[in-house]
Nucleic acid binder design. Structure first.
Length: 589
RNA sequence: GGGCCCGUGGUGUAGUGGCCGAACAUGCGACCCUGUCAAGGUCGAGAGCGCGGGUUCGAAUCCCGUCGGGCCCGCCA
């Protein structure tokens, strides 16, 4: 037996028992003849006392011990005198008086402090990830992640779902993100792809009759990284048969409400989850993943400036553009520099310019960037429309709708951050519904699927497929949380004729469709049930629940922005022999 | 592909043209110390400033290039 207890479980009630502990030296306080060692494992920390008179051999081991040495200690548990309680430790009312101590393994000086949250270069943390993972922050995050996944598994099991694994080596499809490819040794010149998601496979499971499926599924996308994007990530992949959109939304909402109440009871939830249409989300927030923790809604100034002669607005209005504004309460005190930052930000987001005005106290002059270019009546009307209060900063953008949304979304998030409006203990889940089915791709001069080519259009919009495809709404839905997209899904097409209509629209000819999706199309001819699903992103949800700002903090071994594993140095060159077996010749430019 | 930020003993920082063959804290080594919990005290070792070039009488500091890390745009059906 290596240990009788963990370092986190001893309490005053254990006093008098002899225990055997094993763990890492978290901290050592050496008083000469008396040494205290905080022994740590993932369950907690226990203070062990080494007395040179009472147990000279054990004391000698403690004397030589250093941070992160691995020790085994035997001795009786003593309740501490009340004045020596340590309220910061769960085990703070007791200590173990070592009678024997064994050095299980020494440790070199660690390049990271385990007992201190470091501000060190993240590259160092990633290179020595196994040390970084010893720290409290990462232990907490990975334990939280375990609890989240465990809760989901248990919940869905109770709801009658089956967890079914799907292959990692699958067929490449050129649609969507860039695939990670795996060369075939047995089939020279041919490749598998790693799944971007198990989309097609889960739909085929529906055809197979597994009407409630889920999987904690690893997904791979060879695209550039972000704080919330890694080359491999985990989705809660789900699919259900004989359901409509409402069934999926209801299930997910119940699941995540129950999950949050269980694993992050200190956080508040808004229930039921607010629902926005895609059009409404863009209208009110300029984003299809708005942070719903605060208001700061965009105001349409179209009606107010419709008749304006000012060139500021005319150029946009006469070319189908919009004029919209954002009221930032109390930001009228911003310095010139702070305003310039906002203007720069707007330009970065694609705006030609940003108009701003400060609402004056009654009777005062309006301080603004465009006062000379509009009449006093127009300025007053704008302030009225935006419900500006004295001291507010009004930000206005006149441009194409897409630019207006993009810019004001950026400014809204920046303002929300500056004004500290986003309560970190509020979980603002929400649904964004009725996405367009397809989107015009200007470069390629064709219609692209917004979600994916198996997403069902809304029945009442079917008649527009031939005439005005851009207005066809999809039976698709996104789950958002605190400004992040944390899941997306749809009701799928299960009718062959509708599928064909969509392929025609997307410009996928029959031969191409058969080559790429033949297995799907054929499967749909053998009695495919109506079905739909969703795929919440586990990493992002864990990140938000753990109060982290990158998903790397909730992954054990993440990669850098360049998709490199700094610990193992992957990717790396391989032997010529391996390449030959795979029939691969390198062509390095 | 592009924009912005960062890179100084093991670790975190200071130093932004000569005061620097580099300072502070922590960690490390030695010694002292029987109630600490970021223990305390004394002494000591440890970097030539990511790398390469250039400007200058003189470069950690300025310039160019390059490598690594981060944030963002593009990309992510």
């Amino acid at each position: 037996m290596f240990r009788s207890h963990t370092c986190g479980e001893l309490r005053a009630g254990h006093a008098g028992q002899e225990v055997l502990l094993a763990g890492w030296v978290h901290r050592r306080r050496d008083h000469g003849p008396l040494i205290f060692i905080d022994l740590r494992d993932r369950y907690g920390i226990t203070q062990v006392v080494f007395d040179s008179t009472a147990a000279p051999a054990a004391h000698a081991v403690a004397s030589d011990a250093r941070s992160e040495y691995v020790l085994q200690v035997r001795g009786p548990v003593f309740e501490r005198p009340v004045e020596a309680y340590n309220p910061d430790l769960a085990t703070g009312t007791i200590e173990v008086h070592a009678t024997e101590a064994t050095l299980l393994n020494p440790a070199r000086n660690t390049p990271l402090y385990i007992n201190k949250e470091g501000g060190e270069d993240e590259a160092l943390r990633l290179k020595y990830r196994y040390l970084d993972l010893r720290r409290e922050r990462m232990q907490k995050n990975l334990i939280l992640r375990h609890r989240i996944v465990k809760f989901i598994r248990d919940y869905l099991d109770r709801e009658g779902f089956l967890e079914i694994e799907t292959p990692i080596l699958i067929k490449s499809t050129p649609e969507g993100a860039r695939d990670y490819l795996v060369p075939s040794r047995i089939h020279p010149g041919e490749f598998y792809a790693l799944p971007q998601s198990p989309q097609q496979l889960k739909q085929l499971l529906m055809v197979a009759g597994f009407d409630r499926y889920f999987q904690i599924a690893r997904c791979f996308r060879d695209e550039d990284q972000r704080a919330d994007r890694q080359p491999e990530f985990t989705q809660l992949d789900m699919e259900l048969s004989f359901v409509d959109q409402e069934d999926v939304l209801d299930l997910i909402e119940r699941l995540f409400i129950a999950l949050c109440r269980e694993v992050v009871p200190h956080k508040r939830l808004v229930t039921p989850f607010p629902r926005l249409t895609y059009a409404e989300a863009l209208e009110r927030y300029g984003s299809d993943k708005p942070d719903l923790r605060y208001g700061l809604e965009l105001v349409n100034l179209g009606p107010v400036v419709a008749q304006s002669q000012s060139g500021l607005f005319r150029a946009a209005l006469d070319t189908g553009g919009q004029v919209k504004g954002l009221r930032v309460p109390g930001a009228g005190t911003y310095s010139r520099k702070q305003l310039d930052e906002l203007v720069d930000m707007a330009k970065q987001a694609g705006a030609r310019g940003l108009l701003w005005a400060v609402v004056p106290a009654d009777g005062g002059d309006v301080r603004s960037s465009f006062g000379k270019q509009v009449s006093p009546e127009e300025m007053a009307a704008i302030i009225r429309q935006m419900e500006g209060e004295p001291g507010d900063l009004l930000l206005i953008v006149a441009d194409a709708p897409k630019i207006v949304a993009q810019v004001l979304d950026r400014l809204r998030r920046e303002s929300g951050a500056r004004l500290n409006l986003a309560d970190p203990n509020l979980l603002a889940w929400g649904w964004v519904l009725d996405f367009p089915l397809v989107e015009w791709n200007e470069e390629e001069q064709r219609w692209d699927a917004v979600h994916h080519p198996f997403t069902a259009p809304r029945d009442e919009d079917l008649h527009l497929m031939g005439t005005d495809p851009g207005r066809v709404r999809a039976r698709a839905y996104d789950l958002v949380l605190n400004g992040y997209e944390v899941g997306g899904g749809s009701i799928r097409i299960h009718r062959r004729d509708v599928q064909q209509q969509l392929f025609d629209l997307l410009g996928i000819d029959r031969e191409t469709a058969m080559r790429q999706f033949g297995h799907m199309l054929e499967a749909f001819e053998y009695g495919a049930p109506p079905h739909g699903g969703i795929a919440p992103g586990i990493d992002r949800i864990c990140m938000i629940l753990a109060d982290e700002s990158t998903i790397r903090e909730v992954m054990a071994f993440p990669k850098t922005q360049q998709a490199v594993d700094l610990m193992t140095s992957a990717p790396s060159p391989v032997d010529e022999r391996q390449l030959r077996e795979l029939h691969i010749a390198l062509r390095l430019e």
